[in-house]
Amino acid sequence: MNLKTPKGLTVLVVFMFGFGFMLVPLYDVFCEITGLNGKTNGQYQGEITPAGSEKGRQVTLQFVVNKNDNLPWEFEPNQTEMTLAVGERRETTYRVTNTYKTAAIAQAVPSVSPAEAAEYLNKIECFCFEQQPLEAGEHKDMPLVFFVDPKLPAHINKLTLSYTLFDITNSKKPASDPHKVKKVVN
């Protein structure tokens, strides 16, 4: 009996099972390159790219929020819209209140529309990088520091940044950066 074929096939099966899992990080890479789903990048580490010939170009940025699964908390942007120049470092805050009678942990998930613009909106500091523990009734203003990359395609003049707030108190996560959590799993 020739066992080469079944052995080869078994290897293929195991490989494809692994490949299924490999699709997870591959998808992340794919998202980062294409801005698929409006996913934003992680924390921006480098210098702010100064505006070159783009200098003075203004774009409008809308801030919208959602609360997942009927979360009754108060969660609103303190500024709903701003006009800013590309390459300009700006700051805004979001107000959140835990209306539960117990302490809870929230996680905000960002998404940008049009998706094509996602990779040009760089967050230097963001409450979405951390899980947000809140005491019962506690409210706080959570900061967001960002700039729009001057390389933003010319036809885009309005961006929408959405944050969806999830209550993750009951799902105990080891890490805080949502992008890192997945890597821990793998």
Partner: peptide, 27 residues
Amino acid sequence: TSNDVIHAWWMPDLAIKKDAIPGFINE
């Protein structure tokens, strides 16, 4: 976007059908 599961907003006369996905926005 969506509050819970994936929905899709479909208006045949406007030829728009787009998924509403929890956590993400589509336009």
